[in-house]
Computed example of a mutant assay.
Amino acid sequence: MNICHVLSLYKSCSLAVKQSGRWGLSGVLLLALAGCSSNVAKVETWQGSPASAANAATLEAPGPIQVSQVNGQKMTSFLMDDFALNYALLPGENEVVFTHKTIWAKSGVVENGESKVHVVKSAPQVVRFNAEPDAVYRFRYDQPKSRSEAEGMLEGFSATVIEEDGQVVAESSVWEPSKVWDRTPNLSGSQAAEAASGGSALNTLKSVWATATEDEKKAFLRWAFE
């Protein structure tokens, strides 16, 4: 998230905090965030200032859907578990990793130090789809009505991403962390050398590494750590 977005949220909520001095800090924070959530800007999912950001698509994520990363970029975690957020996606292929998390109050007496709630959380899911410029997408999934129903959904949990008209564009599956997602295309040796003069040296190294043989990688590592 851009620091300007955080400052914008802080400024718009500061009055609510000042006027609630007699309340506990946690209560103030909850009220401020709840009252100002509609003013939170979209969370940017890229680094730098790409030209295509001007026509970024929007992915709406309700509170139970917690996005952890987009295209390998880790997303900010927030204090509120049910905080709905909008994510700005660059046009083109996108990979979104998320979990589905619900919280259920415990019945009966709760011992000191014991959590007052049951947390039901799915395994990390991944969804990949082609985002169109300025398009709006949202998650669709079965919403449990009880804790037991939520627990019963864990093993086969899946969500879809749909367009504004309800058309499905992608369905999630269990995320495999070993599969690295990189939107940067692989370059040949000559292309990498050309990119080094006007692009990111790190991206160039990544591209060259992807095309290197095992022997070349071993030779490079020996040289790098001598």
Rank of each mutant, 00 (worst) to 15 (best):
Thr184Asp: 11
Gly113Val: 00
Glu194Val: 14
Glu214Gly: 07
Ser38Pro: 05
Asn86Ser: 13
Gly156Arg: 00
Arg222Lys: 11
Ser49Lys: 12
Arg128Lys: 09
Lys121Phe: 06
Gly48Asn: 07
Leu15Cys: 12
Val126Phe: 03
Thr213Met: 05
Ala196Leu: 07
Ser122Trp: 01
Lys206Leu: 06
Thr99Arg: 04
Ala196Trp: 06
Glu151Met: 15
Cys4Arg: 15
Asn203Val: 09
Leu89His: 02
Gln66Asn: 06
Ala201Cys: 12
Gly48Met: 01
Trp104Pro: 05
Gly199Gln: 08
Ser207Tyr: 02
Lys74Phe: 10
Ala210Ser: 09
Ala56Ile: 00
Ser107Phe: 03
Glu216Trp: 04
Glu164Tyr: 12
Met153Pro: 03
Ile65Tyr: 06
Gly48Asp: 06
Asp182Ser: 09
Ser172Lys: 06
Ser107Ala: 11
Glu111Pro: 00
Ala16Tyr: 04
Gln191Glu: 04
Gly198Glu: 14
Thr213Lys: 07
Glu111Asp: 05
Asp142Cys: 10
Phe98Gln: 00
Arg183Cys: 13
Ser115Leu: 09
Met80Tyr: 13
Asp182Ala: 02
Ser12Lys: 15
Asn130Ile: 10
Leu205Asn: 13
Lys121Ile: 08
Arg222Gln: 13
His100Ala: 14
Arg222Asn: 10
Glu163Gln: 08
Arg140Trp: 02
Val96Ser: 01
Thr99Lys: 07
Glu164Arg: 14
Ala224Cys: 13
Ser115Arg: 04
Ser207Thr: 04
Phe157Gly: 01
Ala16Ser: 13
Ser173Trp: 10
Glu226Asn: 15
Phe83Gly: 07
Gly24Tyr: 06
Cys36Thr: 13
Val40Asp: 02
Ala195Asp: 04
Asp215Met: 12
Phe225Lys: 15
Val97Leu: 01
Ala201His: 12
Ile103Asp: 01
Pro50Asp: 05
Trp104Ser: 03
Asp134Glu: 09
Ser52Lys: 09
Asp182Tyr: 06
Gly48Ala: 07
Asn55Asp: 11
Gln73Ser: 11
Val96Ala: 00
Asn130Asp: 14
Thr102Leu: 06
Gln66Pro: 02
Ala192Glu: 00
Glu44Val: 05
Glu151Cys: 13
Asn186Glu: 10
Glu149Asn: 01
Cys36Gly: 10
Leu205Met: 15
Phe157Arg: 07
Ala32Cys: 02
Leu7Cys: 12
Glu132Asp: 09
Leu202Asp: 07
Leu154Gly: 08
Ala56His: 00
Gln69Phe: 11
Glu214Trp: 11
Glu216Asn: 09
Val96Ile: 01
Phe220Val: 10
Gln47Glu: 12
Pro177Trp: 00
Ser207Asn: 04
Met153Val: 09
Glu226Gly: 12
Gly63Tyr: 03
Gly113Gln: 02
Ser49Ile: 14
Leu79Ile: 01
Gly156Thr: 09
Ala224Gly: 11
Val6Cys: 12
Val28Trp: 08
Val117His: 14
Trp209Thr: 08
Ala150Asn: 03
Tyr10Asn: 14
Gln73Tyr: 11
Leu15Thr: 15
Pro144Arg: 02
